[in-house]
Amino acid sequence: MEQKISMVSASLNGVRISPRKMRLVADLIRNKEIQKALSILEYSSKKRVSYFFRKLLLSLLSNWKRKYEQLEDINLYINKIVVNQGKTLKRLRPVPQGRGHRIRKRSSNISVFLGKNKK
């Protein structure tokens, strides 16, 4: 009988990058194998976001290894990535005639879930 594998996840909250920019990189690695996703992130280093996703994927592998105590001969892939909006910092920018326009500095919350291929 095959052992039922529950989902392993990792999350990163309060990243000071807007969710819209995060989702661009999240779409690149969604439903990819974990090693392939890490190499994609390594070569998309122009985007500042890729650093946070690499950090998150390495944490996810560590969580998997701690839970199942094995890492070899398993085809792990990214099952699901969720990028939500976190807290928004509100600032004022001075404009003419004594007025102020609002600046919204957005942050993101990221959750990544790991799955196992059935190969």
Rank of each mutant, 00 (worst) to 15 (best):
R104M: 14
V95H: 05
S50P: 03
R106I: 06
R16D: 11
E2R: 15
R102Y: 08
M7W: 03
Q70V: 15
V95A: 02
A37E: 01
I40P: 00
I34T: 06
M22D: 02
K80S: 08
R104T: 10
A10E: 01
K55T: 13
L12W: 07
I81L: 05
L41G: 04
Y51L: 15
F53V: 09
E42I: 07
G98I: 04
A10Y: 00
I17C: 04
N109E: 02
R23C: 03
S18N: 10
R20F: 09
Y51K: 14
G86K: 05
K87C: 04
L89C: 00
Y43D: 08
Y43L: 11
S18L: 02
G100L: 04
I17F: 09
S39Y: 09
K65W: 08
I5N: 07
L61K: 13
N13E: 14
S39Q: 12
I17N: 03
K118A: 11
I103L: 11
G115A: 15
K32G: 05
R66I: 15
I110E: 04
K80H: 08
A10D: 01
G115Q: 09
K47E: 13
R48C: 06
K55A: 08
R23P: 03
Q97T: 12
I34V: 11
I17D: 02
R104N: 15
Q97S: 12
N63W: 06
K36I: 14
I81K: 00
S62V: 09
L92P: 00
S111C: 08
L114A: 07
V15P: 02
K90S: 07
N79H: 15
A26Y: 00
R93M: 12
K4W: 08
K65L: 14
V82M: 08
G86I: 08
R54I: 13
I74H: 03
K55I: 10
V82F: 08
L38W: 01
K90C: 06
S45H: 15
V25Y: 00
L114W: 07
S107Y: 01
L60R: 02
F53K: 06
K105I: 10
K118S: 13
K47A: 13
L92G: 07
K118V: 14
G86W: 04
L56S: 10
I74K: 09
N13Q: 11
K55M: 09
V8T: 06
K21F: 03
K87A: 13
R20V: 12
E2G: 11
K32T: 10
S59W: 02
R66N: 15
N31S: 15
L28G: 06
Q3D: 11
I40S: 01
S108H: 03
P96N: 12
K4Q: 14
